[in-house]
């Protein structure tokens, strides 16, 4: 009874707070100073059509590096925790029921298309919405579809490690190249900004974002692979 009552009071208080927020809301008629700077200068300075990508990769590139590092740490910790008490995987494989015909055929059709969509999303990150993180997640969902079809499927751990390390190294290396040849760390204007709206434009952004996409995809896939390999009894 008392518990119900306190929950009700909490809900009411939350409702009042949100109602106050909603009533006091007046839409801005113009962008604030920071937003206006980005909106006006992105096309001429960076050459990217998608302002969000320009902010993520160039203006706030260091934050993106931090995000990628956090994701890498998460993948490493998941691998560490799941490998605790993990017996050699071959001895403990159980027989699983075969997955349905629909899933098998459908995944054969869909996996290449999903991979293609992921690559498209991160290569075109500077032109259309989306980018490295979204593309990486899409690629990982293709990997997950493979795992759903055949739970005993194993991704090559070596390939994943190589892709991840190389893209991480290139990401940081290109950032340092920005210090040497342009305005600062992760400055994308090492290459010419090119024509606004074409694929090879916006300096280093498509290259950096492709590496971010590969890295995120490899990290998610390695998490899924670790999860699939755990056979704790």
């Amino acid at each position: 009874m008392i518990r119900r009552f306190s929950v009700l009071i909490l809900l009411l208080a939350l409702g009042i707070i949100f109602a106050n927020l909603f009533i006091g809301y007046t839409p801005d008629t113009e962008l604030n100073q920071t937003a206006r700077y980005y909106a006006e200068h992105t096309a001429s300075d960076i050459g990217a059509t998608n302002i969000v990508t320009a902010i993520i990769v160039t203006y706030r590139g260091l934050d993106t590096l931090g995000e990628v590092t956090v994701l890498f740490l998460t993948a490493a910790i998941i691998g560490l925790v799941l490998s605790q008490g993990n017996k050699p995987s071959s001895s403990l494989q159980r027989q699983l029921p075969a997955s349905g015909e629909l899933l098998t055929t459908g995944s054969r059709l869909l996996v290449p298309l999903i991979l293609l969509l992921g690559a498209y999303v991160f290569v075109n990150g500077h032109l259309t919405p989306g980018g490295g993180f979204q593309g990486g997640a899409i690629i990982a969902s293709a990997a997950l579809l493979l795992l759903l079809t055949d739970p005993l499927y194993r991704f090559s751990r070596r390939l994943i490690t190589i892709i991840e390390s190389i893209s991480g190294l290139f990401f940081i290396g290109l950032g340092i190249l920005g210090i040497l040849l342009a305005g600062g760390f992760l400055d994308s204007r090492v290459l010419p900004t090119g024509e606004l709206g074409s694929l090879f434009s916006a300096g280093l952004i498509p290259i950096i974002y492709s590496f971010v996409g590969l890295k995120v995809g490899a990290e998610f896939t390695s998490m899924l692979g670790n999860l699939a390999e755990t056979e704790k009894s």
């Binding site: 997640a137 795992l147 999860l227």
Partner: peptide, 25 residues
């Protein structure tokens, strides 16, 4: 649209897949 894409890919795609995967296990 960028946030929408992330939400659709991770929230509705990966998480649901993952939950079903674990459920199967």
């Amino acid at each position: 649209p960028d946030v929408a894409m992330t939400e659709a890919a991770i929230g509705s795609g990966l998480t649901t897949f993952l939950l079903f995967f674990v459920l199967g296990r």
